[in-house]
């Protein structure tokens, strides 16, 4: 799986560095840094999950670990790592050669703007989140070797943070994501799917649907 380029790492470091420099607000009781584990999910009504066919009680999930830093009274910056897997077992007959399993890992940065209302001081309260990330994916066809490829995502989310016992961070919300065309990988060998000629291939389409809309719940703690 390809790692982020030096350039990509550089951007992240600069962004986080800025966060430390321009932080002028106290955060919650002075605690600006939070570490959080999130679960993004949506009923696998259209897409099957890794194990099961589409069903209302089946969920496509993405696990996320994020680190957020409060920049100001109403904004914060975060870095997250996500991991998900899904499959194409839902695909119709034509998709027999589409990738059976799709694995993805992503590194993202996001910027949060908290709603301009009293009592909504970062990291507390309602927020809108804009983010982008690089996704390192791997499509495993039923036959043949796994094909790694990379995509980029832009994300828009809305959510709300609550703080329990002055330390625990509880958050919930939703997120929309759009995957940009893939790079790397040469498509999936032997694909006969109608996406077969697209560079991102059927796997990317699968991921696109997987990421398009997700609900999000998370639990974390305020580090310092």
């Amino acid at each position: 799986m390809p790692w982020p380029t030096k350039k990509e790492f550089g951007v992240l470091i600069v962004l986080l560095g800025c966060a430390g420099v321009c932080c002028a607000q106290p955060g919650y009781q002075g605690k600006k840094l939070s570490v959080q584990a999130n679960l993004l999910f949506l009923p696998a009504v259209v897409n099957g999950s890794y194990h099961r066919a589409p069903d209302w009680l089946t969920f496509n999930t993405t696990g996320e670990v994020s680190v957020d830093y409060v920049l100001g009274k109403r904004n914060g910056l975060g870095l997250s790592y996500r991991r998900a897997r899904t499959s194409s077992i839902n695909e119709d007959d034509q998709a027999v050669v589409s990738p059976d399993k799709v694995f993805t890992q992503s590194v993202n940065v996001h910027y949060r703007i908290h709603k301009k209302a009293f009592g909504n001081l970062a990291p507390l309260g309602k927020y809108v989140q804009f983010g982008t990330g690089v996704m390192f994916n791997q499509a495993k066809p039923k036959t043949g070797a796994p094909v790694p490829f990379r995509t980029y995502a832009v994300r828009l989310g809305k959510g709300r943070n609550r703080i329990l016992a002055d330390r625990l961070l509880l958050s919930y919300g939703w997120e929309l994501a759009y995957l940009l065309p893939a790079s790397g990988g040469e498509g999936i060998a032997g694909a006969t799917h109608y996406y077969e000629n697209d560079a991102p291939s059927a796997a990317q389409y699968r991921l696109w649907r997987h990421s398009l809309l997700n609900l999000k719940v998370g639990l974390g703690f305020l580090a310092r």
Binding site: P26, Y28, Q29, G30, K73, F118, G119, L121, L124, G125, R162, I163, L164, D166
Partner: peptide, 12 residues
Amino acid sequence: NTRDVLNSTVHN
């Protein structure tokens, strides 16, 4: 008036 809102307000 949850605890976190009050704390945040007072701290601000």
